[in-house]
Write a protein that binds this DNA or RNA. Structure first.
Length: 597
RNA sequence: GUGUCCGUAGCUUAGUGGAUAGAGCGUUGGCCUCCGGAGCCGAAAGCAAGGGUUCGAUUCCCUCCGGACACGCCA
C-alpha cells in the first residue's frame, strides 16, 4: 500500500508539473509547525534556485493550480516559500480504512525478496551469556524480524565461538582434574561414553579457571602457567586436526553448552534458525586459502599470509587482512571467510547483516573487502555491519555488578523482573504467581525497549530503575497502553458489542482524534525508514508517539458511553487499529504484551 | 602518534540544510460523579566553543576543547 505522504505528495507533484516545474519538488512532509498546518512542502524554495525565480511566486502558482483538489481542506503559500497544507478528515479516514482492511496493515512487501543472513548472538561455547551478549541478541533479533516483515527470506545464525584456544584450555583443565577418564587414555580403543562427563554448571567453572591459569592473574600476583598454556595450545591443535578422543570430548562440551544457550536465548525470546559455529567453517579453509594464493590475492608478510585491502579513498591506511598466522593457524577473519564460503554454497544470500560490537569495525572492513575482492561473495552482494555501542552503567563506565565483575545475563533478567514485580505488587491486588508471570513479560519489554530505543551505534546507559518504570518512554508504558485498550475491548464485548469486520471510521473535528489518525497513517512510512536504516529505535519512537496519541484521545473521549452507535463503532474500530499497530511493532521489537498488568 | 565515532535542558535521549530543536525522568502548577490516575493538560530549562560555505547551519566543511574506541598474527 502506498504511503500516505506519497499520496499527498502526488497531489503537490501534479501542481508543480502543471506549473512547468519538475515534479520532484512536490515532496510533502509532516509539518514541523503543527500550530500552522498538518503537512508542508518546501519544494518551492529548492525550485527557486534551479529556476531563478522568487520562491513565493512558485509556491503561489502551485497552490493556485491545485487548491480545489478534493483531498485538501486548506493549502496556502507562506513567505518565503512554504506551502502549508491541511487535509480533509475524509481523505485521512479513507486511507486508514484501506489500512485496516489490508492484511499487511499498509506495509508494502519487497518486490524482489532477498535471501538475508543475519549473523548475531555471538555466544561462546562453555561460557555463560553475560551482558556483553545482550545487545547483539536484542538488536539482532529485532533486525531479523524487521527484515522478514519487509518481505525478505531471513536466516538468523548464532555463529558460535566453538573453535579457538578456549577449547584447548577447557580440555587440558578438565584433563588435569579428571586424568582417569578414557578420553585421556592413549591406549583406549572402545567407544567413548554417550553421556557427558560434566554438567553445564561444572563446565562453566572450568573455563575461567583455565583462562586465569594460562594468562596468570597479575592483580592477585598469580603468575601465568606457561607449561599449561603450551599444553592447551597443543590440545587445540590436536582437536583441530581431528583427534577422536578430543573430538568426542568437544562434542560433549558443545551439546551441553548448546542446550543451556538455547534455554537462555529462549528466555530472551531470541530464536536462531541456524546454530552454526566457527568449527563448521574449518573444512572450507584449506581450499579457500589455496585459491587466495593461486589467484594472487594472498602473499607472505612477516611469516603470515595476508591480503591487501587498502583502497585509494581511505583516509587512513587499512592494514592488510591476515588470513593465516605465521604458525599456520587460522584466525578470526579466516573463520569468518570460511563461513561465507559455506553460506554461499548453502544459501547464496543477497544480503548479509552482521551484528557485533562497534570496536570490531576495522575487522569487518577488512573482512568485507577480502570477501568482495576475492570473489567469495558476488560483487553485488550487500554486506552490512551494525556496530553497536557499549552498555554502560550509571557512572558512564562499562556496566558491572556491584562487586565489579561481569554480570551474567540470567542475573540481569532476574534483577529487572524483580524490579517490575515489586512495582506490580505496589499497585493492585494480584496473586504472587500471577504477578511473577506478568513481571517476566513486562521485564523483557523493559529490558529490550530500554536497549532498542537508543540508536544502536551509540553507547547507552543501562538503568534498571528507569527501564522498569511504568511511566515515561519505557517498554512497560507501551504495554500499559495496549493492556488498557484490551481492557476497553473486553468491556465492550461484555456489553454485547461486536467488533465488526467491516471497519467504519468517521471523520472527526476533534484534535485528539485527528492526531491519532495522523499518527496511525504514518505506520508504513516509519516502518520503511526503519528497514532502510536498519533502525529499530525508530519503531520505539513511533509506538511511544502512538501511545501518547492514544492516551490523549482516551482521556478526552468517552468511548463505551458514547450514545451514537456509529460514532461508538468508529471509536472501537480506531482503538482496534491502534492496538494492532502497537502489537505489530512490539512483535518486531521482540517482546509481547500481557493480558493484564 | 594516526584514524573512526560522539558532545543536544540537572539527568536519559530523539531530530532536521529551512518557520518557534521534540520527548521522557526530575523540578513545578492544575485535572479523579467518567471505559484502568501506571493517566491527562500546563510551566521553567538545551544544540561544548570559534570560524567558514549558504538566502538560511544544531545538521555540511575547518579549527579547537572534552569523551569513547580502534590501530597485522585475540575473538
Amino acid at each position: 500500500m502506498k504511503k500516505f505522504l506519497s499520496e499527498l505528495s502526488q497531489i503537490l507533484e501534479e501542481g508543480f508539473r502543471a506549473c512547468g516545474y519538475d515534479a520532484s519538488y512536490g515532496k510533502v512532509n509532516v509539518s514541523n509547525r503543527p500550530d500552522l498546518c498538518e503537512y508542508q512542502c518546501n519544494g518551492a524554495m529548492a525550485a527557486a534556485k534551479a529556476y531563478k525565480k522568487a520562491p513565493i511566486a512558485i509556491a503561489s502558482a502551485v497552490v493556485e493550480a491545485i487548491k480545489d483538489h478534493p483531498a485538501l481542506e486548506r493549502i496556502e503559500a507562506i513567505n518565503p516559500g512554504f506551502i502549508n497544507i491541511q487535509v480533509k478528515s475524509e481523505f485521512l479516514v479513507e486511507y486508514l480504512m484501506k489500512m485496516a482492511k489490508d492484511p499487511e496493515c499498509g506495509i508494502e512487501k519487497a518486490k524482489d525478496p532477498m535471501t538475508v543472513i543475519v549473523d548475531y548472538g555471538g555466544a561462546n561455547v562453555a561460557k555463560p551469556l553475560h551482558i556483553g551478549h545482550l545487545r547483539s541478541a536484542v538488536i539482532g533479533e529485532s533486525v531479523k524480524r524487521i527484515i522478514a516483515k519487509a518481505g525478505h527470506r531471513v536466516i538468523g545464525d548464532v555463529h558460535l565461538g566453538d573453535w579457538g584456544l578456549q577449547m584447548g584450555l577447557i580440555i587440558e583443565q578438565f584433563h588435569d582434574e579428571n586424568p582417569d577418564l578414557p578420553y585421556f587414555d592413549p591406549n583406549f580403543t572402545g567407544e567413548y561414553p554417550k553421556e557427558s562427563p560434566f554438567t553445564i554448571s561444572e563446565l562453566e567453572t572450568i573455563y575461567p579457571k583455565a583462562s586465569k591459569r594460562a594468562k596468570g592473574d597479575p592483580k592477585n600476583g598469580v603468575e601465568a602457567d606457561v607449561e599449561f598454556a603450551n599444553r592447551a595450545h597443543q590440545a587445540t591443535v590436536r582437536l583441530q586436526s581431528g583427534d577422536p578422543s578430543y573430538t568426542a570430548l568437544w562434542k560433549h562440551i558443545l551439546s551441553v553448552s548448546l542446550a543451556d544457550l538455547k534455554k537462555n536465548y529462549d528466555n530472551l525470546d531470541v530464536h536462531f534458525d541456524l546454530w552454526k559455529g566457527e568449527s563448521d567453517a574449518q573444512k572450507y579453509i584449506p581450499d579457500m586459502i589455496e585459491k587466495f594464493e593461486k589467484d594472487g590475492f594472498a602473499y607472505e608478510s612477516q611469516g603470515a599470509l595476508v591480503i591487501d585491502v587498502a583502497e585509494e579513498s581511505d583516509s587512513k591506511e587499512i592494514p592488510p587482512c591476515i588470513v593465516r598466522k605465521s604458525d599456520g593457524g587460522a584466525l578470526y577473519a579466516t573463520s569468518d571467510l570460511g563461513t561465507l564460503v559455506e553460506r554461499e554454497k548453502d544459501y547464496h544470500p543477497d544480503w548479509y547483516v552482521y551484528l557485533a560490537d562497534k570496536r570490531q569495525a576495522l575487522h569487518y572492513t577488512q573482512f568485507f573487502r577480502v570477501a568482495k575482492k576475492t570473489g567469495i561473495v558476488p560483487a553485488d552482494a550487500r554486506l552490512d555491519y551494525i556496530g553497536f555501542g557499549t552498555m554502560n552503567g550509571k557512572d558512564g563506565g562499562p556496566f558491572k555488578t556491584r562487586e565489579g565483575g561481569v554480570m551474567r545475563l540470567e542475573q540481569l533478567i532476574r534483577e529487572i523482573n524483580e524490579a517490575v514485580y515489586q512495582r506490580i505488587m505496589e499497585g493492585r491486588e494480584v496473586s504472587e504467581e500471577e504477578a511473577r508471570a506478568t513481571a517476566k513479560v513486562i521485564g523483557l519489554a523493559a529490558l529490550k525497549y530500554g536497549d532498542l530505543s537508543n540508536q544502536a551505534t551509540k553507547d547507552y546507559i543501562f538503568d534498571i530503575d528507569r527501564f522498569a518504570s511504568f511511566e515515561g518512554n519505557t517498554g512497560p508504558y507501551i504495554l500499559y497502553t495496549i493492556v488498557r485498550i484490551k481492557s476497553i475491548l473486553a468491556k465492550y464485548a461484555e456489553q454485547g458489542g461486536q467488533v465488526s469486520e467491516v471497519t467504519t471510521l468517521l471523520p472527526s473535528t476533534s484534535e485528539s482524534i485527528k492526531n491519532l489518525y495522523r499518527v496511525l497513517s504514518r505506520y508504513n512510512e516509519v516502518f520503511e525508514s526503519a528497514v532502510n536504516e536498519i533502525a529499530p529505535h525508530k519503531l520505539c519512537q513511533y509506538i511511544f508517539e502512538l501511545s501518547n496519541a492514544f492516551n490523549g484521545f482516551y482521556h478526552e473521549t468517552k468511548i463505551l458511553a458514547e450514545e451514537d452507535e456509529k460514532v461508538r463503532a468508529s471509536y472501537i474500530a480506531l482503538i482496534v487499529l491502534t492496538k494492532r499497530v502497537l502489537e505489530e511493532n512490539i512483535e518486531l521489537l521482540g517482546f509481547s504484551a500481557p493480558e493484564k498488568m
